[in-house]
Every structure is written in structure tokens, then in C-alpha cells.
Amino acid sequence: MQLAVDDRPVADVEVADTVLTRARGLLFRRALPEALLLRPCSSVHGAGMRVPLDVALLSADLAVLGTQVLRPWAVTRPRRGVTQVLEAPAGSFERWGLREGSRLALTSA
């Protein structure tokens, strides 16, 4: 799938939407994908991660409710209205222009 930020295609995205794919997330990967969308999901952790990640907390309609850099072993707090979480290598959101208030979309690649 392709991820778009405010109608601009920015990256390929993997969707983790089963219990197993969400549980695995980015753990034990030698190479990180451009982006990973976890749904349903309201918070994430950096346990076992070696590098920081950009994290966007999303509403059901893919509006960005908040962003943060998640350091290894840190945790995001659950937040009202968050139903999905987007993870990407640190620095990705700045390159993509993704910030609170951005609208995301998924399209077939």
C-alpha cells in the first residue's frame, strides 16, 4: 500500500491489522519498512527497539491527532480518539511534512 500525507504520496506502508502482525510490529527486523500502520491500536512501546521511531497517533479517519519521537524502551500514552498508530524511522515525518492536523490516506500501490 502507498501512504499519502495531505494528498501527497510519501512512502510504502505495511498494515498490521491482525493480532500476530500487531504483536510483532517492528520487533526483530533487520531493516525497517518505510512505514507501519497498526490498527486497531491506541498506544505503542519501544521495548526491544534499538533506534528511535517517529510515531503518529491517528483517528479512525486517519487524521493525525499527535506525533512524537519514540525512544527505545519508551511508551506512548493512550489518548482519547486514537484508533490507529503509524510508525516510521525517525526523521521520516519531517521529510514527509506530517504533523498534527495532517490527513493521511492509503492507496493501492
Rank of each mutant, 00 (worst) to 15 (best):
M1N: 08
M1R: 09
Q2E: 14
L3T: 05
L3E: 04
A4T: 09
D6Q: 06
D6T: 02
D6R: 05
D7R: 15
D7L: 12
R8M: 11
R8I: 13
V10G: 06
A11P: 08
D12H: 13
D12T: 13
D12Y: 07
D12L: 13
D12F: 11
E14H: 02
A16S: 04
D17V: 01
T18P: 00
V19W: 13
V19C: 04
V19P: 00
V19I: 15
T21I: 00
R22A: 01
R22S: 00
A23S: 12
R24H: 11
L26M: 05
L26Y: 09
L27K: 11
L27C: 00
F28K: 12
F28T: 02
F28Q: 12
R29I: 03
R29K: 14
R29S: 02
R30Y: 00
R30G: 13
A31T: 14
A31M: 10
A31C: 11
L32G: 02
L32S: 03
L32Y: 14
P33K: 03
P33S: 07
A35N: 01
L36R: 03
L37P: 00
L38D: 03
L38K: 03
R39V: 14
R39N: 00
P40H: 06
P40M: 10
C41S: 07
C41H: 01
S42E: 14
S43F: 11
S43V: 02
V44S: 10
H45Q: 04
G46M: 03
G46H: 02
G46E: 06
A47K: 12
G48T: 04
M49E: 02
R50K: 15
V51I: 12
V51T: 14
V51H: 13
V51A: 14
D54F: 04
A56Y: 02
A56D: 08
L57C: 03
L58P: 05
L58F: 02
S59N: 01
A60N: 10
D61C: 04
L62Y: 13
A63P: 00
V64Y: 06
G66I: 06
T67N: 08
T67R: 10
Q68P: 00
Q68F: 01
L70A: 03
L70I: 05
R71Q: 15
R71P: 00
W73V: 01
W73E: 12
A74Q: 14
A74D: 13
A74L: 05
V75A: 11
V75C: 12
T76H: 07
R77C: 10
R80V: 15
G81R: 08
Q84W: 02
V85N: 08
V85I: 13
L86W: 00
L86T: 10
E87V: 03
E87D: 07
E87I: 07
A88V: 01
A88S: 11
P89A: 14
P89H: 08
A90M: 11
G91Y: 10
S92Y: 02
S92I: 04
S92P: 05
E94I: 10
E94T: 14
E94Q: 14
R95T: 10
W96L: 07
W96N: 02
W96C: 06
L98R: 07
R99C: 11
E100A: 15
G101D: 08
G101T: 05
S102D: 10
R103H: 13
R103C: 10
R103K: 15
L104T: 04
L106G: 08
T107A: 15
A109R: 13
